[in-house]
Amino acid sequence: MSSRRNFLQKISFSAAALPFMSLKDTAPAAVEKNYDGPVLRVAIMGLGSYGTRVAEAMQQCTKAKLVGVISGTLSKIAAWQARYNIPAKNCYNYENFDAVKDNPDIDAIYVITPNALHKEQVIRVAKAGKHAICEKPMAVNAADAQQMVDACKKANVKLLIGYRMHFEPKTLEVIRMRKAGEFGAIRFFQGLSGFVIGDPSQWRMNKALSGGGAMMDIGIYSINGARYMTGEDPVWVTAQETKTNPAKFKDGLDETIQFQMGFPSGAVASCLSTYNMNFLDKFYLNGEKGFAEMQPSTGYGPIEGKTHKGPLTQPHITHQTLQMDGMAALILENKQPVVPVDGEEGVKDMKIIDAIFEAIKTGNKVSLSWQK
């Protein structure tokens, strides 16, 4: 399974049908069918293809409910109102959504817009007194990401990042096995993340909006995956960039990056991020006593994998359904996930991306420090 962009490239629905495609065949009901507790009321900002995917998945949630929308396109707002029964008072555009501070019927806003817009929009959400959920990467660099964290702390609201894999059952089983020592000391991680990007005019190929190329889109999966699979944060990175089509991948838009990371334990990682190769969605974890292999490892699912003990057989539930219910539990009940999804987690990934770009620019090994 490829990334969400690759998936959307290949489906054959028309542009008109895409915003409301049915996901019922891949969205079984969440586990807690008889849940009778508080519900997180969410507005989605950015009504594109991934916003649609989240909205459809939320129809199966028990702890989170879609109640509002924020968009610059009036026709999308009208269509979402009709489909999801959203009242007019919960509909905003990008200019007036600060008024949500006076709307007690919205608890949180999920920002699903181009990367470069996240910082300003999340800070505005925080100033409006609403919890912020931000799609990854959370910003275009670590400095901007830290400003987002600081703004949410100042406003006393939560900032969560859209790490759906942190709630995925097979992924969590591998993490459980690693924590239980079933792999022994971790020695090596490999992460392969890539697909051939399509339309060159899309915002992801505009550095001003994306902040970069493949690394800011698909490469972050291997970065974050290396961290939750090994259970460590890297202390150094090295990286090399390959560009075969400079006309398409202009300055600041990376096509293919190979990068390596070293961890405090001595474990190492070798990863690939690319917009020029399909069928790359694989994690491999090697320990002194065993291994885990996942392919696909981060696609929409079902995730497939095995360890030295046999196949991973945990059930598939739509990732965004699990994510939104898990985030609702975190916000409403302070129930912490196995792997953090807070803003600080997102800042770490951005620091690693910054270091990778620095390593490419200088040709040097770049050290990372996690002291506050």
Rank of each mutant, 00 (worst) to 15 (best):
K10H: 15
A15K: 15
A15C: 08
A16R: 12
A17G: 06
D25W: 09
K33W: 04
M45W: 05
G51M: 00
C61S: 08
C61V: 09
V67C: 04
K76S: 13
A78Q: 15
W80D: 03
I86G: 02
E95C: 09
E95A: 14
D102W: 09
D102R: 12
A108V: 13
V111W: 10
G129W: 03
A132T: 09
I133K: 10
Q147C: 10
M148V: 14
A151P: 01
A155T: 03
V157S: 00
K158N: 14
H166C: 12
E168G: 00
L172N: 13
F189A: 00
A208Q: 14
S210T: 03
G219Y: 03
I223E: 01
T230P: 08
T230Q: 05
T238I: 08
E255G: 02
E255P: 10
I257G: 01
Q260P: 06
P264S: 02
S265W: 13
G266N: 12
S270A: 12
C271N: 12
M277Q: 15
E288T: 13
P296C: 01
S297M: 03
G299R: 05
P302T: 01
G326F: 08
L332S: 02
E333M: 11
E333A: 10
G346C: 05
G346E: 08
G346I: 00
F357P: 05
I360F: 01
